[in-house]
């Protein structure tokens, strides 16, 4: 069972990993620095698959992809928040970190035990049975997520344009309405 780590609104990438700790591409070092100042007990307490539950605009600030790697290397299984800053959002999808966009997360407490169904995008609190259903990713992000990351997509199709239907060649079809307002 995964546990919830609660964070507030506007958690920025400096807080996920301060700039003084990202002079490396070493996963273990980046993982050890995850939330090092914002929540010093995080790396010692986090268990593989635990879930970050945060407020609005998670991941704002710098473009540093080290933030996504730090979360992954620390063992984070998914991030759940009502909204994400756009660069962090792309970075997470590109690296295969699961993001769920859910509203009304206020009652979900720090330390709560939860189950996560990545396929259906449903988060379930064990003690109450309460469920949160994520808004679906935009179509292109879904395509990337299906491949497990954007490099995998590029590898599979020789570029970004594979698997894109009749409009392929001069851009992709518009994203149908009703999807998550992302990008």
């Amino acid at each position: 069972m995964a546990r919830v780590w609660r964070f507030g609104d506007s958690v920025n990438t400096d807080q996920i990993i301060p700039g003084r700790y990202n002079l490396t591409t070493d996963w273990a070092a980046l993982g050890r620095a995850c939330f090092v100042e914002l929540r010093p007990d995080f790396t010692s307490g986090v268990r593989p698959g635990d879930v970050i539950v945060a407020g609005e605009d998670f991941g704002c600030g710098s473009s540093r992809e080290h933030a996504v790697i730090a979360l992954q290397a620390a063992g984070v299984g998914a991030v759940v928040a009502p909204s994400y800053a756009r660069i962090f959002y792309r970075n997470a999808i590109n690296r295969g970190l699961t993001l769920l966009e859910c509203s009304d997360l206020g009652s979900l407490a720090d330390g709560a035990e939860v189950e996560l169904d990545r396929i259906s995008g449903v988060l379930r609190e064990a003690s109450t049975g309460r469920e949160w259903r994520a808004r679906p990713l935009p179509e292109f992000a879904q395509r990337i997520a299906r491949h497990g990351g954007v490099l995998e997509l590029v590898q599979a199709h020789g570029g970004l344009r594979g698997e894109c239907g009749p409009d392929c060649g001069s851009g992709l079809a518009p994203v149908p309405g009703g999807e998550s307002d992302v990008r």
């Binding site: 660069i87 792309r90 490099l151």
Partner: peptide, 15 residues
């Protein structure tokens, strides 16, 4: 601005 993976894809594909 983008992250390093998006930029790697832009370097590799020009897109």
């Amino acid at each position: 601005g983008m992250g390093s993976t998006d930029i790697a894809v832009a370097y590799a594909t020009g897109e």
